[in-house]
Design a protein around this nucleic acid. Structure first.
Lengths: 233, 233
DNA sequence: ATTATTAATTGTCGTTTTGACATTTAATAT
DNA sequence: ATATTAAATGTCAAAACGACAATTAATAAT
């Protein structure tokens, strides 16, 4: 086998697909690229992996630098490494998808940074292979959200069932029956009903719920049922 | 933002977690590392990503070079990029897991290469972070296999239901009820019953089945049921 | 030839979950 | 007092599930 020294070295970057929910629509956070090539074109939030950080840490750092966001849900998507994906120099990029509550960070974003939210369906064309990254992230989000309670990451601490349903509908691009949805969500035992109501959406008002954090942590792992009585490895 | 030129460059490698099934047990393919550091210690099959190939292509090439295997099921696991994971020089590694039918390649392996099969539970300690890679791959295999018909990749073209069940039991490290398993497998409509029987395992013999390849391709995508009547994005 | 043996195959039943569907309820506006 | 609007909840038939045991097809033993 070959020695280390004779092997080629590459740039390694991270790119973050940041999904957010504003109560009505699933959105994605984009920035105008600040360096050549493709300067001033819309792009995912990204940056190079530094010498003393892992890609995971780089993604966290880059996200914070570009948006002010910290401690948000972040998950590796996959690596993008076609030799010619960056025209200047070979760069491998690790894709991440992030989930945040838009309203929580709205002010911060508008004031301090150049990031902008777009409807998924109305986003501009992106540089390099970023459009593919978005498509992949969208698919993975849907896949994962069908089996894990991660969509709560995009909601405020207090949220209503109708809000939650709209979010599911947006992610899955489909309509869901209110009665069946409510039944299934209740059966998870993840929600705690609060006294307070959200009156903004209707005259009657919808009860707020919050996450049962203990059960939430326990259920982050898969809850599959092809194999009965399955226990973690 | 910084220029490309001022950014650090890294080695990028691939490491393959190769799972196989011999009819009885789930096994993993390991090699003795051929270069410093940690030379002659057990390791995953890996290699550096060359200048003119993607990581996916590198994984294919490395697998073929080390085992003679070609055109096998290969899927990206995740990237491993802790700054100090390789003591010589910073190297990021893309983990892949592969699925093959052990019997198909047995002779080839023993004769031409130094790879060796181990029971998952009896494998030696591996170099660097390869033990973590194996653990991650095992979890992902189980997760994916619960939702997608990928385990067939580890079986011969003709296989029996009892064989298939043992494989499921191995992957999930659990016992499954014969009657319920058979019912569920049949309901997928993925199997075609053949005339021939496998007499090696019993006096009565077990009917061979083969995959319905058309339905197999269609079902490689997720078949979830949290969202009724879900169609692909 | 009959019987024993072994693993493969198939069946039942009560419970739970599912998907499709409509009515009632709580608040505000008229 | 009534209309309006969205939230919350109920029913029912069909399907899927999990737990459980009996039958069948072939060979081996007597």
């Amino acid at each position: 086998m070959l020695e280390y020294s004779s092997q080629p070295h590459y740039l390694v970057a991270v790119d973050c697909i940041v999904f957010g929910f504003d109560g009505e629509h699933l959105k994605i956070l984009l920035v105008k690229r600040g360096l050549q090539p493709e300067i001033n074109k819309w792009s995912l939030i990204g940056g190079f992996v530094g010498s003393n950080e892992s890609p995971d840490e780089a993604a966290q750092r880059v996200l914070k630098k570009n948006t002010g966001l910290e401690g948000i849900y972040l998950e590796q998507l996959q690596i993008y490494g076609e030799p010619a994906r960056d025209p200047i120099e070979r760069t491998l990029s690790v894709g991440y998808f992030a989930l945040i509550d838009i309203n929580k960070y709205k002010t911060q974003l508008n004031d301090d940074y150049h990031a902008e939210w777009f409807l998924i369906s109305e986003r501009p064309r992106l540089i390099f292979d970023h459009d593919r990254m978005v498509a992949d992230a969208r698919e993975k989000l849907r896949y994962k959200a069908a089996l894990h309670p991660i969509l709560f990451e995009m909601l405020p601490k207090k949220f209503t069932i109708p809000q939650l349903q709209i979010l599911f509908e947006e992610v899955n691009d489909t309509k869901i029956d209110t009665r069946n949805f409510s039944r299934k969500i209740s059966s998870t035992g993840l929600l705690i009903k609060l006294e307070e109501k959200d009156k903004s959406g209707s005259k009657k008002g919808a009860y707020y719920f919050k996450l049962d954090k203990k059960k939430y942590q326990a259920n982050l792992q898969a809850f599959l049922n092809l194999i009965p009585n399955l226990k973690p490895l």
